[in-house]
């Protein structure tokens, strides 16, 4: 995995100059040692301060706070939080709506990332042809949805997919592919595929750029050699080019997966999680329980936080497992070169 490579490289001391005058007095007390360290590296710590404050406030603190809230029964309106221990978690385990949302988040991940990566890879290889004069133009067109705000895209697509006079249904009716309008976002069977399709449309351009960047690293002589061997077309793509750009695939996979977990804006603006919770993913579940009590029920911040914690824990363990697997794969491949 890309990130792991980076961190492994970084663990070796990079600059011995700055380490050489670290305080190493054995006779001084621990406190003096700590103060001495702080003094020696005061510029380092000072420079990290703005970033650490931001991350502390909006990344690290919220993680611990979420765990704290998850242990409490709390409506958000009152100052009193009632400690319930693992009560919220036991309740979650018995809540089918939670498990459905949980599953749907994973389904979304599995439904988008592989398709998005494959389609964009094929497109990247086609656009990478030297003789294709219009590549840049096509790339610009494909990239357009990426720069459009998600909420706008969600709303425009609700119109396009509308069963009442929506252009997509109009086309399907004209072509005779369906005899009556399909309510894409209004039925529980079609809502997830529709949202997944729109998501891929929205973000395909960015994966395309990543693949194009990867393809640029393939040296020219590889193509020359392949041509001499009369290897071209899809054989060249699969047997020659693909193995070379494989290391990039992991980085692209990681970036795409992180992105596919933040689907709140698209689903919220398209369906609000409906119909009948049919497109409710984890983030919508959390939002609905914490902030938006449409049905008039009381917000349950503690319960929502517990859902977040549980989901976050699963993701974190998946990340760790993936990292371990990649490290093992790397080691056996390169003989511990990293």
């Amino acid at each position: 995995m890309y990130k792991q490579t980076q961190s492994a490289r970084l663990i070796q001391p990079l600059d011995r100059l700055t380490c050489s005058h670290a305080s190493t007095g054995h006779s001084t007390s621990n406190l003096m040692n700590i103060l001495g360290t702080l003094r020696t590296y005061r510029f380092h710590y000072l420079m990290m301060l703005p970033g650490l404050v931001l991350a502390g406030m909006f990344v690290f603190y919220p993680i611990f706070a979420a765990v704290f809230y998850a242990m409490h029964d709390w409506t958000g309106f009152t100052a009193t939080k009632i400690f319930v221990g693992f009560g919220n978690f036991t309740k979650l385990f018995q809540d089918p709506i939670f498990w459905n949302a949980f599953g749907r988040s994973l389904l979304f991940l599995a439904g988008t990332v592989p398709l998005q990566m494959t389609i964009s890879l094929v497109l990247a290889m086609v656009l990478n042809m030297q003789l294709l004069k219009l590549s840049t133009f096509f790339r610009t067109m494909i990239f357009l949805p990426v720069v459009t705000p998600v909420a706008v895209i969600g709303i425009v697509w609700t119109f396009l997919l509308s069963p009442f006079n929506g252009p997509v249904n109009g086309l399907l009716l004209d072509l005779g592919l369906t005899s009556r309008p399909i309510d894409f976002l209004g039925s529980t069977e079609t809502v997830m595929p529709s949202v997944i399709g729109v998501y891929i449309w929205k973000w395909l351009g960015i994966t395309l750029i990543y693949w194009l960047a990867a393809l640029q690293t393939v040296p020219d002589d590889v193509y020359d050699a392949a041509r001499l061997d009369n290897c071209r077309g899809y054989r060249l793509a699969i047997h020659v080019v693909l193995p070379i750009i494989k290391p990039f695939a992991l980085a692209i996979l990681l970036i795409s997966s992180v992105a596919a977990l933040n689907v709140f804006p698209l689903i919220m603006s398209m369906t609000n999680g409906g119909p009948f919770f049919g497109s409710e993913v984890m983030e919508i579940f959390i939002y609905r329980n914490a902030f938006a009590a449409d049905d008039g029920s009381i917000p349950q911040l503690g319960y929502a936080a517990a859902a977040g914690v549980l989901f976050g824990a699963v993701l974190l363990s998946l990340t760790i497992l993936q990292a371990l697997a990649t490290r093992r794969a790397r080691k056996s491949n390169a003989g511990g070169a990293m």
Binding site: Y45, E283, I286, G308, F311
Partner: peptide, 25 residues
């Protein structure tokens, strides 16, 4: 410098945390 590794691991570990997880706090 002392503490570098801790910071680094903390940052790498939180890459996957989605926004919904931290929105309430």
């Amino acid at each position: 410098f002392p503490g570098r590794k801790v910071f680094f691991v903390a940052f790498v570990a939180t890459v996957f945390i989605p926004q919904g997880f931290t929105i309430i706090p």
